[in-house]
Structure formats: C-alpha cells, structure tokens
Amino acid sequence: MLGKVMLGLAGTTALAGAYLVQQGTVRVSLDEHRANGRHVHLLVPAALVPMGMRFVPEENLLDAARQARPFLLTIRVASGELARLPDCDLVEVQDVNKYVKITKRGGSLVIDVQSPEETVHVSFPLRLADRIAAQLESLGPSA
C-alpha cells in the first residue's frame, strides 16, 4: 500500500516537473554597480506566473490591462511570430557606455543590458507573454 502511495507521489512529482520544464522559466537579474546597489535575482517557473496573477488585487490588474490594452494585440502577434523563428540575435547595440542585446533562445526572449550603472538580464518564454496578454485582454474593453 505504502509502495503505491510512494509510486503515486513520485509519478505526480515527475509529471509536475515535466510540466514546469516544458513551460520554461522567467529569469530577472539586476545588479547595480554602486555602493549599496541593489542585486535582484529571480528565477520563477513560467507556469506559476499566470497562477500568481490570480492573487494580484483586481484593481491593479484592471489598471495594468487598461494601460497595456493598446499593445496587447501587438504583443500577442509578435510573441507568436517570434516563437516560430529559429534561435537568432535580433538586436545588438553597443555605444561607448552601453550594450543591449535581444535574442531568441529556445522559445524564450532574452534581453541583456550592460551599462556602467547596472547589468540587467531578463528572459521569459514567449508563450508566457502571449498567455499574460490574453489574460489581460480577457479583462474586457472597459478595463
């Protein structure tokens, strides 16, 4: 009996793990190059983000949806189109002080910014961008 329970637990964990791996991760990393600068490093399974949005106060979500509304369709179409592309470097800009690179890697959009003030890295699965845009869109035109 205990064996079956353990097997069930192991199976569920394996399935959950496979699902999380499939959905990808959101990575945000910020390092400020000054004394007492902030160092923020986040690694969140993308599958948890839409779930997490359910805990955001409704008025905040409505406000976000209202502000993002003009761009939601563009985000959805762009993320869908980018997802179809092979891995590639989309934008790379360097000047005396700053370096910005936007690439598409394995289903995710990766943004790197380096400047004397800070180093920023953001990567997220393109499918997540589409899901969040869809979720905000569903909040209705009155949002």
């Binding site: 189109e81 470097d89 790379e92 000047d95 005396v96």
Partner: peptide, 13 residues
C-alpha cells in the same frame, strides 16, 4: 569603443 548596431528582422515578422 565605437558604435555597433546589428538588427536582424524576418520580413514575415
């Protein structure tokens, strides 16, 4: 340390 720009954009996009 000169300027460098690379943009690669599929026309279909």
């Amino acid at each position: 340390k000169g300027e460098l720009v690379r943009i690669n954009l599929p026309l279909s996009f």
